[in-house]
Nucleic acid binder design. Sequence first.
DNA 1: AATGAATGAGAATTCATTCAT
DNA 2: AATGAATGAATTCTCATTCAT
Lengths: 220, 220, 220, 220
Amino acid sequence: MSDPVLTVDLDSNVLAPIGKRARTKVANRAAILDAARQVFGELGYEAAAVRDIIRRTGLSVGAFYNYYRSKEEVYEALAEDGARRFRPILHAQYEQAKDFESYLHGAIRAYFEFLITDSQAWLTQRPRGERHPQLRLDTPEMLAVFNEVRASIAEAIDKGLAPPVDAEYLAGASIGVAREVGDLMLERRPPNLDEAADFAVRMLLGGLAAVPRRAPPPPL
Amino acid sequence: MSDPVLTVDLDSNVLAPIGKRARTKVANRAAILDAARQVFGELGYEAAAVRDIIRRTGLSVGAFYNYYRSKEEVYEALAEDGARRFRPILHAQYEQAKDFESYLHGAIRAYFEFLITDSQAWLTQRPRGERHPQLRLDTPEMLAVFNEVRASIAEAIDKGLAPPVDAEYLAGASIGVAREVGDLMLERRPPNLDEAADFAVRMLLGGLAAVPRRAPPPPL
Amino acid sequence: MSDPVLTVDLDSNVLAPIGKRARTKVANRAAILDAARQVFGELGYEAAAVRDIIRRTGLSVGAFYNYYRSKEEVYEALAEDGARRFRPILHAQYEQAKDFESYLHGAIRAYFEFLITDSQAWLTQRPRGERHPQLRLDTPEMLAVFNEVRASIAEAIDKGLAPPVDAEYLAGASIGVAREVGDLMLERRPPNLDEAADFAVRMLLGGLAAVPRRAPPPPL
Amino acid sequence: MSDPVLTVDLDSNVLAPIGKRARTKVANRAAILDAARQVFGELGYEAAAVRDIIRRTGLSVGAFYNYYRSKEEVYEALAEDGARRFRPILHAQYEQAKDFESYLHGAIRAYFEFLITDSQAWLTQRPRGERHPQLRLDTPEMLAVFNEVRASIAEAIDKGLAPPVDAEYLAGASIGVAREVGDLMLERRPPNLDEAADFAVRMLLGGLAAVPRRAPPPPL
DNA sequence: AATGAATGAGAATTCATTCAT
DNA sequence: AATGAATGAATTCTCATTCAT
């Protein structure tokens, strides 16, 4: 196969094959952002070296600094990018939801879709071996998303959309479930969004009792 | 002399002053482990410098390497230590539980107690301000604990103690809730174990519907 | 549009606005040279970046390298330029001087005029604050001028125009006085050429005893 | 010849042969300072790389940072060191001088001695070839010394020790002469302190007329 | 010619680990 | 064992210069 020169369409989130030197500024910027998403996701902020990022773009160190002024700036750009993309989705769910259940359902599905889309590119490379001593490898984007969710749940309770329970704890529990179930979903081949979202939502709304009974999946 | 930092003596599980050079090998080993727990918790693995660790023990860099062969080794020792301490507790819950509900209740309370105990020493120092772009600062011990829980839930389902639901997802959800609610609990002054455990367990067993209705806590 | 930086058009020796892209090759060359003079004067050779220079010309980095092959080459061009402009002035003084005194007087006035003219454009911008650990920021042109003076004094002694003293030391002393007094003159508002030249010449010819007695200027 | 292990005596300013790894902390600190003095003197602050400095000490990059926290810090240490060593000398001259003439004489001799002593170690290495485009290569120490002198002259005039001339200009002229003549003195083999000091002082006190008549030295 | 993105060598600094004492 | 200075690879970032357009 020859070298296709694809540009990255940020809005449709279709990734060009990385590693080839991208031609346009927009494409390079996007390529760096994508590579950074991967690398931060795999190694965490501290362990990720700028070199790790640019290596996946085929660019030079210098080029990195043409696009972002520092390692931290990419990180922040990533976070902003995530929030910017996810917030409207979350808002739409909020607007069209008739009750908290449907809101939660919509939000969780949105998050899982977000996860699947964003991970598409790098999930395949992931098995880079030893995940040494690392903690939790959220992309900055996800953290940004969680903040959106936190605010959104607090608001829902404030407005009487959800029952008047401890808002912080409810947001925490929701995020906790979404986060962990989301991660597990990504590890299944193929990721089954419906199954995972169904589980998470039922768990949050009705607890263990409400969760579908069935045989566990075959172990990895 | 200033206030000696209080920390948990691992062997006696009793608060003991460190900062004064400990005299025995066992004590030094424990002091390093304690300091490492704090530092990893505050800074994360990568950002934590060996010097940060030994500074809190009053030992020398050289001494560090007499006790652990590398930074990574302390990290692993910490994980092992957590698992070693937590596994029997979890097991006891498992043994004495008549059903999954009481097991879950016991396990979550055990985890929250673990959290409170372990964080006691350093939670106070935490306000080192800006956790720059950092994610989630689990102690390696907590990660080890989660693995215990994962296994334990799978076993519970296997043995018919819990309903035959997706074991991985259930474990994920349980850990997710425990983790997030646990973190939030630690941030409340004073940490209210009963309240938090109650919330987490009810959420996991009965979902949003089962959670106690009440006014949210005053904002930070 | 903001205030165009005023600078000396080298060919006409007239103040001309730069910042607008100059149209002719000659003009561009001169613009670069002017900008370089400023920047080297403000930052010194090492700290001055090619980008600092071209930024003041409105040209592109690439254009810079169309006119000069390297940063060093502009530096040298600047030196040559200074020597080329100053040598005839110095020579005129030499020719028309009836004795060493009048020669020295002429030379020093010429140098001070040179200083005032060349610094006019950038002296105003100077307050960029902290000249970190930097030493003396002579323009390469000034260094070239000093060499002219050195040669010229040696020749004067050779030809019996000046008393047969240690030529090197005399040149050194003359340059030292001219340099330091010249710098101080530039810092006074307004620069007083007559006063400074008078001081320098008297000092060199008659020493402390010959220097005018009067109240020191008000402190900065 | 075998490896002599000499420690550096800072007060007597006897240098150990550099390049050999020094044994004591004091010696290493001094070796770095000495190397820095040389390198800053040869290359200037910006062009001098930390590596240039440590190369001459036989130490490693890391060791440098054990002694000084940054390149800038050595620079400042150097300046302080110079001022600290020179100030008392200058003061002694000031105290024991009966008039401005003897003060000036003492100060200039002190400065020239300072120059000769400090340059002893590195003057020999100097001919490292092309002094590319560099300006004036004062050691930070010298700059510090000049500031001392400036203050001291102003004070002398204030107190009526010197005639009431323009203090700034007088200080400038004195420094200019001392600086240039001092540099030239260092280039003569052997440096002749008496000759140079005599010239400088006479020049400053009586000008060209007072300077000894004699044949110039053979050119370099 | 002009443009400005790309390049990559090189700079300052950090930090895990070693080792002489 | 304990100490802490020494080591040097690795990291982030800069900047002179090249080169495709």
